[in-house]
């Protein structure tokens, strides 16, 4: 088992290298001079060259990449062009916010997704199944930002139950575990949970239906297990796949929440990315994408390890 984890960790190194290469290349693939947004329109050629040297754009690409990677490994992701603050600090603070939101959304999505999935799988082709399937299709298909706006209109503007935007009272972005702060998470988390809920519900429904059709379920009944006893076996059989899907969904939520974070002005990585793109803040963009990609790689690693521990059929040797 330890050897397996060790090998799996080693495998992530080339993946991470590849990812960082793509992140680095983004700056140079995207059209336009990265310095345009920093320099005033009437900047002299002299100033342009100085700035190029300052940012290291005058060196060869491999050299630039090596330097950038070397600094990144040490935790230095450069300086934001727009704010002049260290990218690493900005990204980490935003990542904390996003992680909190995404984790809550995944938990909500997982709990309800499993609930719908199990009910639908157990009572296949009944009206409960059809209702659960309908809900999950709606969950997957409904545009996020639209749902977010509808929720804001209903629960913030009309009913006034929950705050519409921000991560805390008065636009504060520091986090405290109290109701004031948690209430800010409710609407974005629910909005965000809808897609993983739909996907997990559909996965679990298919899993449960497939497991129940297997002969070992008859075998379990033949041993005298009642419905509850059989259910425990179904859960353990479904768990590895369901958890893997949940882990991947958490990964998508970490990176793919730009729209929701923008709608709710949630000070997370998506919000940061949005700002970085509009301000052409390339170091910030690079750093954020790199951190998110690393998250995703590590999450996949964690999912693989957990799945291996839960499912004895996965080869460990």
């Amino acid at each position: 088992m330890l050897a397996y984890i060790g090998r799996r960790v080693v495998y992530t190194v080339p993946i991470m290298l590849g990812v960082s290469l793509v992140c680095f290349a983004l700056v140079h693939i995207s059209p336009g001079d990265p310095l345009v947004s920093v320099l005033p329109a009437d900047a002299s050629e002299q100033l342009r060259l100085t700035m190029m040297r300052l940012y290291g754009f005058d060196r060869s690409y491999p050299e630039q990449f090596g330097l950038w990677l070397w600094r990144a490994v040490q935790g230095d992701l450069g300086t934001s062009i727009a704010t002049g603050r260290a990218v690493a600090t900005e990204v980490l603070r935003a990542a904390g916010n996003t992680l909190r939101l995404a984790a809550l959304a995944t938990v909500i999505g997982f709990v309800f997704g499993c609930l719908f999935g199990f009910v639908a799988g157990y009572f296949r082709d009944s009206w409960v199944d059809k209702l659960a399937s309908l809900l999950s299709v709606i969950g997957v298909s409904v545009p996020h930002y639209w749902l977010g706006m509808v929720l804001v209109i209903v629960f913030s503007s009309q009913l006034g139950w929950l705050p519409a935007t921000g991560a805390g009272p008065g636009g504060s972005s520091s986090w405290v575990w109290d109701w004031e702060h948690v209430s800010h998470m409710v609407l974005p988390a629910i909005t965000m949970s809808v897609i993983p809920m739909g996907i997990i519900a559909r996965t679990v429904r298919a899993l449960v239906a497939e497991i129940l059709a297997q002969e070992f379920v008859i075998g379990l009944k033949a041993r005298g297990l009642n419905e509850v006893g059989v259910f425990a076996h179904v859960v353990k059989n479904a768990a590895p796949t369901a958890l893997a899907v949940m882990g991947l969904q958490l990964g998508y939520l970490l990176g793919g929440s730009i729209l929701i974070e923008t709608v709710f002005s949630w000070p997370g990585t998506g919000f940061l990315l949005n700002a970085a793109i509009f301000q052409r803040d390339l170091p910030l963009l690079q750093g954020t994408i790199l951190v998110l990609a690393m998250f995703f790689v590590l999450l996949n690693l964690a999912v693989d390890v957990v799945q291996t521990m839960l499912d004895p059929r996965i080869e460990r040797g």
Partner: peptide, 13 residues
């Protein structure tokens, strides 16, 4: 059963 591989729960010892 005919095929014990199918009739035993695969994820329990």
């Amino acid at each position: 059963f005919q095929e014990p591989l199918l009739a035993l729960d695969p994820v329990y010892t």
